[in-house]
Protein backbone atom coordinates (compact mmCIF):
# COMPACT_ATOMS: atom_id res chain seq x y z
CA UNK A 1 0.00 0.00 0.00
CA UNK A 2 2.64 2.52 1.02
CA UNK A 3 4.97 1.30 -1.71
CA UNK A 4 2.46 2.24 -4.33
CA UNK A 5 1.83 5.61 -2.77
CA UNK A 6 5.03 7.19 -3.99
CA UNK A 7 5.96 6.35 -7.56
CA UNK A 8 8.59 9.08 -7.75
CA UNK A 9 10.65 7.46 -4.99
CA UNK A 10 10.61 4.19 -6.88
CA UNK A 11 11.85 5.86 -10.04
CA UNK A 12 14.56 7.79 -8.24
CA UNK A 13 16.30 5.07 -6.28
CA UNK A 14 17.38 1.71 -7.66
CA UNK A 15 17.04 -0.02 -4.30
CA UNK A 16 13.24 0.29 -4.06
CA UNK A 17 13.09 -0.86 -7.68
CA UNK A 18 14.86 -4.01 -6.61
CA UNK A 19 12.52 -4.40 -3.68
CA UNK A 20 9.54 -3.87 -5.94
CA UNK A 21 10.75 -6.79 -7.99
CA UNK A 22 10.36 -9.04 -4.99
CA UNK A 23 7.18 -7.42 -3.78
CA UNK A 24 4.52 -9.51 -5.53
CA UNK A 25 5.32 -12.47 -3.28
CA UNK A 26 5.08 -10.32 -0.17
CA UNK A 27 1.92 -8.66 -1.43
CA UNK A 28 0.40 -12.01 -2.21
CA UNK A 29 1.15 -13.28 1.27
CA UNK A 30 -0.39 -10.19 2.85
CA UNK A 31 -3.37 -10.42 0.52
CA UNK A 32 -3.93 -14.09 1.16
CA UNK A 33 -4.32 -13.48 4.89
CA UNK A 34 -6.95 -10.83 4.14
CA UNK A 35 -8.69 -13.14 1.73
CA UNK A 36 -8.64 -16.17 3.99
CA UNK A 37 -9.37 -14.63 7.40
CA UNK A 38 -13.11 -13.85 6.99
CA UNK A 39 -14.19 -17.34 5.86
CA UNK A 40 -11.80 -18.90 8.40
CA UNK A 41 -13.37 -16.90 11.24
CA UNK A 42 -16.86 -17.90 10.14
CA UNK A 43 -16.07 -21.61 9.78
CA UNK A 44 -14.17 -21.60 13.09
CA UNK A 45 -17.24 -20.29 14.88
CA UNK A 46 -19.41 -22.78 13.01
CA UNK A 47 -17.09 -25.59 14.12
CA UNK A 48 -17.08 -24.49 17.76
CA UNK A 49 -20.86 -24.22 17.79
CA UNK A 50 -21.36 -27.57 16.08
CA UNK A 51 -19.12 -29.28 18.65
CA UNK A 52 -20.80 -27.57 21.58
CA UNK A 53 -24.37 -27.79 20.40
CA UNK A 54 -25.17 -29.81 17.25
CA UNK A 55 -28.85 -28.88 17.48
CA UNK A 56 -28.08 -25.47 15.96
CA UNK A 57 -26.62 -26.83 12.76
CA UNK A 58 -29.45 -28.54 10.89
CA UNK A 59 -30.97 -27.10 7.71
CA UNK A 60 -33.25 -25.11 9.97
CA UNK A 61 -30.26 -23.39 11.59
CA UNK A 62 -28.78 -22.52 8.19
CA UNK A 63 -32.08 -21.10 7.05
CA UNK A 64 -32.44 -18.94 10.18
CA UNK A 65 -28.85 -17.68 10.06
CA UNK A 66 -28.94 -16.77 6.37
CA UNK A 67 -32.37 -15.16 6.68
CA UNK A 68 -31.21 -12.85 9.46
CA UNK A 69 -27.93 -12.25 7.62
CA UNK A 70 -29.60 -11.11 4.37
CA UNK A 71 -30.42 -7.47 5.27
CA UNK A 72 -27.07 -7.12 7.10
CA UNK A 73 -25.25 -8.49 4.04
CA UNK A 74 -26.91 -6.04 1.66
CA UNK A 75 -26.28 -3.00 3.85
CA UNK A 76 -22.71 -4.19 4.48
CA UNK A 77 -22.01 -4.56 0.74
CA UNK A 78 -22.92 -0.94 0.10
CA UNK A 79 -20.86 0.09 3.12
CA UNK A 80 -17.86 -1.92 1.89
CA UNK A 81 -17.97 -0.14 -1.47
CA UNK A 82 -18.01 3.24 0.30
CA UNK A 83 -15.24 2.24 2.74
CA UNK A 84 -13.23 1.12 -0.30
CA UNK A 85 -12.95 4.72 -1.52
CA UNK A 86 -11.92 5.82 2.00
CA UNK A 87 -15.26 7.36 2.96
CA UNK A 88 -18.06 6.10 5.19
CA UNK A 89 -21.84 6.08 4.74
CA UNK A 90 -23.60 6.39 8.10
CA UNK A 91 -26.90 7.01 6.33
CA UNK A 92 -27.24 3.74 4.42
CA UNK A 93 -29.30 1.93 7.07
CA UNK A 94 -31.53 5.01 7.39
CA UNK A 95 -31.92 5.01 3.59
CA UNK A 96 -33.02 1.37 3.82
CA UNK A 97 -35.50 2.19 6.59
CA UNK A 98 -36.94 5.12 4.63
CA UNK A 99 -37.14 2.80 1.63
CA UNK A 100 -39.11 0.14 3.52
CA UNK A 101 -41.78 2.69 4.45
CA UNK A 102 -41.95 4.09 0.92
CA UNK A 103 -42.17 0.53 -0.42
CA UNK A 104 -44.93 -0.54 1.98
CA UNK A 105 -46.91 2.59 1.07
CA UNK A 106 -46.56 2.26 -2.72
CA UNK A 107 -46.82 -1.49 -3.29
CA UNK A 108 -50.60 -1.84 -2.74
CA UNK A 109 -51.36 0.57 -5.59
CA UNK A 110 -48.50 -0.01 -8.00
CA UNK A 111 -47.51 -3.66 -7.52
CA UNK A 112 -44.16 -4.58 -9.02
CA UNK A 113 -43.54 -1.01 -10.17
CA UNK A 114 -43.03 -0.18 -6.49
CA UNK A 115 -39.73 -2.03 -6.62
CA UNK A 116 -38.53 0.20 -9.46
CA UNK A 117 -39.79 3.35 -7.73
CA UNK A 118 -38.08 2.52 -4.44
CA UNK A 119 -34.80 1.49 -6.05
CA UNK A 120 -34.78 4.73 -8.07
CA UNK A 121 -35.52 6.90 -5.04
CA UNK A 122 -32.89 5.33 -2.77
CA UNK A 123 -30.28 5.42 -5.54
CA UNK A 124 -30.98 9.14 -5.97
CA UNK A 125 -30.62 9.73 -2.22
CA UNK A 126 -27.26 7.96 -2.34
CA UNK A 127 -26.21 9.98 -5.39
CA UNK A 128 -27.17 13.16 -3.51
CA UNK A 129 -24.80 12.17 -0.68
CA UNK A 130 -22.06 11.53 -3.22
CA UNK A 131 -22.63 14.79 -5.06
CA UNK A 132 -22.49 16.86 -1.86
CA UNK A 133 -19.33 15.03 -0.85
CA UNK A 134 -17.72 15.49 -4.26
CA UNK A 135 -18.59 19.15 -4.77
CA UNK A 136 -18.40 20.62 -1.26
CA UNK A 137 -15.61 18.35 0.02
CA UNK A 138 -17.09 17.94 3.48
CA UNK A 139 -16.09 14.89 5.53
CA UNK A 140 -18.39 11.98 4.64
CA UNK A 141 -18.77 11.02 8.33
CA UNK A 142 -20.41 14.35 9.22
CA UNK A 143 -22.30 14.61 5.92
CA UNK A 144 -23.94 11.19 6.18
CA UNK A 145 -24.61 11.72 9.90
CA UNK A 146 -26.64 14.74 8.76
CA UNK A 147 -28.58 12.82 6.09
CA UNK A 148 -29.07 10.03 8.66
CA UNK A 149 -30.94 12.47 10.91
CA UNK A 150 -33.00 13.89 8.06
CA UNK A 151 -33.99 10.42 6.81
CA UNK A 152 -34.93 9.35 10.34
CA UNK A 153 -37.38 12.24 10.56
CA UNK A 154 -38.57 11.57 7.01
CA UNK A 155 -39.31 7.95 7.96
CA UNK A 156 -41.22 8.97 11.09
CA UNK A 157 -43.25 11.58 9.24
CA UNK A 158 -43.96 9.43 6.18
CA UNK A 159 -45.15 6.51 8.31
CA UNK A 160 -46.96 8.74 10.81
CA UNK A 161 -44.95 6.87 13.50
CA UNK A 162 -47.06 3.79 12.82
CA UNK A 163 -46.44 0.31 11.50
CA UNK A 164 -47.59 -0.10 7.90
CA UNK A 165 -48.72 -3.62 7.09
CA UNK A 166 -48.49 -4.70 3.48
CA UNK A 167 -51.86 -6.27 2.71
CA UNK A 168 -52.48 -6.00 -1.02
CA UNK A 169 -49.82 -7.48 -3.31
CA UNK A 170 -48.22 -8.91 -0.19
CA UNK A 171 -47.33 -12.21 -1.88
CA UNK A 172 -45.29 -10.34 -4.54
CA UNK A 173 -42.67 -9.43 -1.99
CA UNK A 174 -42.97 -12.12 0.68
CA UNK A 175 -42.22 -14.68 -2.04
CA UNK A 176 -38.62 -13.46 -1.94
CA UNK A 177 -38.39 -14.69 1.63
CA UNK A 178 -40.60 -17.74 1.38
CA UNK A 179 -38.90 -19.14 -1.74
CA UNK A 180 -35.84 -21.17 -0.83
CA UNK A 181 -32.97 -22.59 -2.80
CA UNK A 182 -30.83 -25.11 -0.89
CA UNK A 183 -32.74 -24.14 2.25
CA UNK A 184 -31.56 -20.55 1.92
CA UNK A 185 -34.11 -17.78 1.25
CA UNK A 186 -33.92 -15.84 -2.01
CA UNK A 187 -33.19 -12.62 -0.11
CA UNK A 188 -29.79 -13.98 0.85
CA UNK A 189 -29.12 -15.13 -2.72
CA UNK A 190 -29.82 -11.56 -3.89
CA UNK A 191 -27.02 -10.51 -1.56
CA UNK A 192 -24.71 -13.19 -2.94
CA UNK A 193 -25.47 -12.11 -6.51
CA UNK A 194 -24.77 -8.46 -5.63
CA UNK A 195 -21.51 -9.46 -3.94
CA UNK A 196 -20.33 -11.35 -7.02
CA UNK A 197 -21.33 -8.44 -9.28
CA UNK A 198 -19.45 -5.92 -7.10
CA UNK A 199 -16.42 -8.16 -6.83
CA UNK A 200 -16.31 -8.51 -10.61
CA UNK A 201 -16.62 -4.77 -11.01
CA UNK A 202 -13.81 -3.99 -8.54
CA UNK A 203 -11.58 -6.64 -10.04
CA UNK A 204 -12.07 -6.36 -13.78
CA UNK A 205 -13.50 -2.97 -14.73
CA UNK A 206 -11.90 0.45 -15.02
CA UNK A 207 -14.68 1.95 -12.90
CA UNK A 208 -13.93 -0.52 -10.11
CA UNK A 209 -10.18 0.02 -10.29
CA UNK A 210 -10.77 3.77 -10.14
CA UNK A 211 -12.72 3.31 -6.91
CA UNK A 212 -9.91 1.35 -5.29
CA UNK A 213 -7.39 3.89 -6.56
CA UNK A 214 -9.27 6.72 -4.84
CA UNK A 215 -9.27 4.71 -1.61
CA UNK A 216 -5.59 3.83 -1.76
CA UNK A 217 -4.29 7.29 -2.57
CA UNK A 218 -6.72 10.05 -3.41
CA UNK A 219 -4.07 12.62 -4.31
CA UNK A 220 -2.42 10.08 -6.58
CA UNK A 221 -5.78 9.34 -8.20
CA UNK A 222 -6.42 13.05 -8.82
CA UNK A 223 -3.00 13.44 -10.47
CA UNK A 224 -3.67 10.34 -12.57
CA UNK A 225 -6.82 11.96 -13.99
CA UNK A 226 -9.20 9.56 -12.24
CA UNK A 227 -12.60 11.29 -12.42
CA UNK A 228 -12.92 11.36 -8.62
CA UNK A 229 -16.18 13.30 -8.52
CA UNK A 230 -17.90 10.78 -10.78
CA UNK A 231 -16.36 7.92 -8.80
CA UNK A 232 -17.66 9.29 -5.49
CA UNK A 233 -21.15 9.97 -6.81
CA UNK A 234 -21.28 6.50 -8.38
CA UNK A 235 -20.13 4.75 -5.20
CA UNK A 236 -22.62 6.54 -2.95
CA UNK A 237 -25.38 5.91 -5.49
CA UNK A 238 -24.37 2.24 -5.42
CA UNK A 239 -24.58 2.28 -1.64
CA UNK A 240 -28.09 3.74 -1.88
CA UNK A 241 -29.08 1.14 -4.49
CA UNK A 242 -27.80 -1.72 -2.33
CA UNK A 243 -29.78 -0.32 0.60
CA UNK A 244 -32.74 -0.52 -1.77
CA UNK A 245 -32.10 -4.25 -2.21
CA UNK A 246 -32.01 -4.47 1.60
CA UNK A 247 -35.47 -2.84 1.58
CA UNK A 248 -36.79 -5.82 -0.40
CA UNK A 249 -35.17 -8.26 2.03
CA UNK A 250 -36.58 -6.46 5.09
CA UNK A 251 -40.15 -6.09 3.81
CA UNK A 252 -40.11 -9.65 2.44
CA UNK A 253 -39.16 -10.92 5.88
CA UNK A 254 -41.35 -8.70 8.04
CA UNK A 255 -44.36 -8.16 5.74
CA UNK A 256 -44.58 -4.69 7.24
CA UNK A 257 -42.56 -1.52 7.70
CA UNK A 258 -42.15 0.92 10.57
CA UNK A 259 -39.61 3.52 11.64
CA UNK A 260 -38.69 1.41 14.67
CA UNK A 261 -39.19 -2.06 13.20
CA UNK A 262 -36.92 -4.55 11.48
CA UNK A 263 -34.16 -2.59 9.77
CA UNK A 264 -33.97 0.26 12.28
CA UNK A 265 -30.80 -1.18 13.84
CA UNK A 266 -28.83 -2.15 10.74
CA UNK A 267 -26.15 0.55 10.68
CA UNK A 268 -23.70 -0.87 13.21
CA UNK A 269 -24.09 -4.55 12.25
CA UNK A 270 -23.61 -3.46 8.63
CA UNK A 271 -20.34 -1.66 9.42
CA UNK A 272 -19.22 -4.56 11.63
CA UNK A 273 -19.97 -7.07 8.84
CA UNK A 274 -17.99 -5.04 6.31
CA UNK A 275 -15.02 -4.82 8.72
CA UNK A 276 -15.17 -8.49 9.76
CA UNK A 277 -15.31 -9.21 6.01
CA UNK A 278 -11.83 -7.76 5.69
CA UNK A 279 -12.74 -4.27 4.45
CA UNK A 280 -10.20 -1.67 5.56
CA UNK A 281 -11.71 1.38 7.26
CA UNK A 282 -8.97 3.58 5.83
CA UNK A 283 -9.87 2.65 2.26
CA UNK A 284 -8.37 0.84 -0.70
CA UNK A 285 -9.21 -2.65 0.42
CA UNK A 286 -12.53 -4.41 -0.02
CA UNK A 287 -13.54 -7.88 -1.09
CA UNK A 288 -17.32 -8.12 -1.53
CA UNK A 289 -17.21 -11.94 -1.58
CA UNK A 290 -15.66 -11.92 1.88
CA UNK A 291 -18.32 -9.49 3.09
CA UNK A 292 -20.74 -12.44 2.67
CA UNK A 293 -18.77 -14.28 5.36
CA UNK A 294 -18.55 -11.10 7.41
CA UNK A 295 -22.34 -10.76 7.37
CA UNK A 296 -22.82 -14.45 8.17
CA UNK A 297 -20.40 -14.13 11.09
CA UNK A 298 -22.08 -11.01 12.46
CA UNK A 299 -25.52 -12.63 12.17
CA UNK A 300 -24.22 -15.86 13.65
CA UNK A 301 -22.43 -14.42 16.71
CA UNK A 302 -25.63 -13.97 18.76
CA UNK A 303 -26.73 -17.51 17.82
CA UNK A 304 -23.27 -18.84 18.67
CA UNK A 305 -23.20 -17.01 21.99
CA UNK A 306 -26.52 -18.58 22.86
CA UNK A 307 -25.43 -22.04 21.70
CA UNK A 308 -22.31 -21.80 23.85
CA UNK A 309 -24.39 -21.09 26.92
CA UNK A 310 -23.94 -17.33 27.23
CA UNK A 311 -27.27 -15.88 28.27
CA UNK A 312 -29.10 -13.44 26.06
CA UNK A 313 -27.82 -10.72 28.38
CA UNK A 314 -24.17 -11.40 27.60
CA UNK A 315 -24.67 -10.95 23.85
CA UNK A 316 -23.65 -7.31 23.62
CA UNK A 317 -20.51 -7.99 25.63
CA UNK A 318 -19.51 -10.96 23.47
CA UNK A 319 -20.31 -9.00 20.32
CA UNK A 320 -18.15 -6.04 21.37
CA UNK A 321 -15.10 -8.14 22.24
CA UNK A 322 -15.60 -10.21 19.10
CA UNK A 323 -15.48 -7.16 16.78
CA UNK A 324 -12.32 -5.88 18.49
CA UNK A 325 -10.56 -9.26 18.35
CA UNK A 326 -11.43 -10.02 14.71
CA UNK A 327 -10.43 -6.57 13.44
CA UNK A 328 -7.25 -6.64 15.56
CA UNK A 329 -6.33 -9.90 13.85
CA UNK A 330 -7.09 -8.78 10.31
CA UNK A 331 -6.25 -5.06 10.21
CA UNK A 332 -3.43 -3.70 8.03
CA UNK A 333 -0.33 -2.43 9.81
CA UNK A 334 1.95 -1.30 7.02
CA UNK A 335 5.06 0.52 8.22
CA UNK A 336 4.71 4.27 8.56
CA UNK A 337 0.95 4.23 8.15
CA UNK A 338 -1.04 6.61 10.36
CA UNK A 339 -3.90 4.91 12.19
CA UNK A 340 -6.63 7.36 13.18
Amino acid sequence: MTDRADPSARAAAPAPEDRAGRLPGGLRRAASWHVLAPPLVFFAILLVVSVANPAYLGPFGVSIATASAAPILLVALGQAMVLNIGSIDLSNAAIALFGTILFALTIPATGLAAIVIVLAVVTLIGAFNGAVLAYTQVPSFALTLGTFGILQTASLVLSGSETIYVSENRELVTALYATRAFGIPLTFWIGVAAAIAYWTMLRFTVAGQNMTAVGKNESGAIFSAVPIRRVKIAVFALSGFTSGLAVLAIVAQAGSASASGLGSALLLPGIAAALVGGTSISGGQANPINVIFGALTVAFVPIAAQALGFGAQAQSLVYGFFIIVVVTLTTTRARGIVIK
Binding site: Q313, A314, G320, I323, T331
Partner: peptide
Protein backbone atom coordinates in the same frame (compact mmCIF):
# COMPACT_ATOMS: atom_id res chain seq x y z
CA UNK B 1 -2.31 -2.70 18.66
CA UNK B 2 -2.88 -0.06 15.96
CA UNK B 3 -6.54 -0.82 15.37
CA UNK B 4 -8.52 2.18 13.98
CA UNK B 5 -10.24 4.04 16.84
CA UNK B 6 -13.56 3.90 14.98
CA UNK B 7 -13.60 0.11 15.26
CA UNK B 8 -12.21 -0.15 18.79
CA UNK B 9 -14.67 2.34 20.20
CA UNK B 10 -17.49 0.63 18.29
CA UNK B 11 -16.43 -2.53 20.15
CA UNK B 12 -16.21 -0.82 23.55
CA UNK B 13 -19.65 0.70 22.92
CA UNK B 14 -21.09 -2.84 22.82
CA UNK B 15 -18.85 -3.97 25.71
CA UNK B 16 -20.09 -1.09 27.89
CA UNK B 17 -23.68 -1.77 26.92
CA UNK B 18 -23.11 -5.46 27.68
CA UNK B 19 -21.77 -4.65 31.15
CA UNK B 20 -24.80 -2.45 31.81
CA UNK B 21 -27.19 -5.19 30.66
CA UNK B 22 -25.45 -7.81 32.82
Amino acid sequence: LKVPSFVVSLGTWYVGLGIAIL
